[in-house]
Amino acid sequence: MSPPLFELRALHYAYATQSTVLQDINFELRAGERVGLVGNNGSGKTTLLQIFVGLLTPQRGEILAFGKPRVKEADFWEVRLKTGFLFQDPDDQLFCPTVAEDVAFGVFNQGKPRAEVLRIVEETLALLGLSAYAERVTHKLSFGEKRLVALATILAMQPEVLLLDEPTTGLDEQVCARITHILQQLPQAMLIVSHDKEFLQQLQVQSWRLRAGRLERV
């Protein structure tokens, strides 16, 4: 069996101003697996996702990603290029003036040549049915459109893992169904934080719950 894409071992994390948020977390994510992460508000779900890509550094424990231990900021550069992280608020994610530029941003960061970037941008937008949006100005999109474009920006990077932070929150049924349908077709391993039980069921995830700082299989 190939090594897991992500592996957390005995991980502890606490914010400076709070008591421990995460305690003794052990977790593995393998290729093709879809994991749903549930838990109350403030239980540390987003914190955990941010630890995966090195945005937060745990006080104790080990993170292995793509077969290597990851400790320093520089260790995570490679991890981030192979991981698609969808933020809760698409306004945080879409910072470029136009949709095409935003989709191109991550692909450029992967060091691909311009011609290829242009091709990937076009293909990704077509895949999500967003071709007409390429030159639209990001801040003028509706919330649902922003969420779809944000998804396009990470899929364009052809990541091996998707970390999705509440991908359906605040969406109407139509966009919700569209996102569900898109995700169902994708082969990537996924870790999805969500309160939407129906959505998690449709994606046939294995569920894990964060409670009182501990992560347990449901």
Binding site: R80, F85, F87, D92, F105, R114, V117
Partner: peptide, 20 residues
């Protein structure tokens, strides 16, 4: 801070590229 985190997640390391 959130925007910067989101940019780093997509591999931003201080360099911008021009699409057009």
């Amino acid at each position: 801070q959130q925007i910067e985190a989101a940019m780093r997640c997509r591999g931003y390391r201080g360099h911008f590229y021009l699409l057009h």
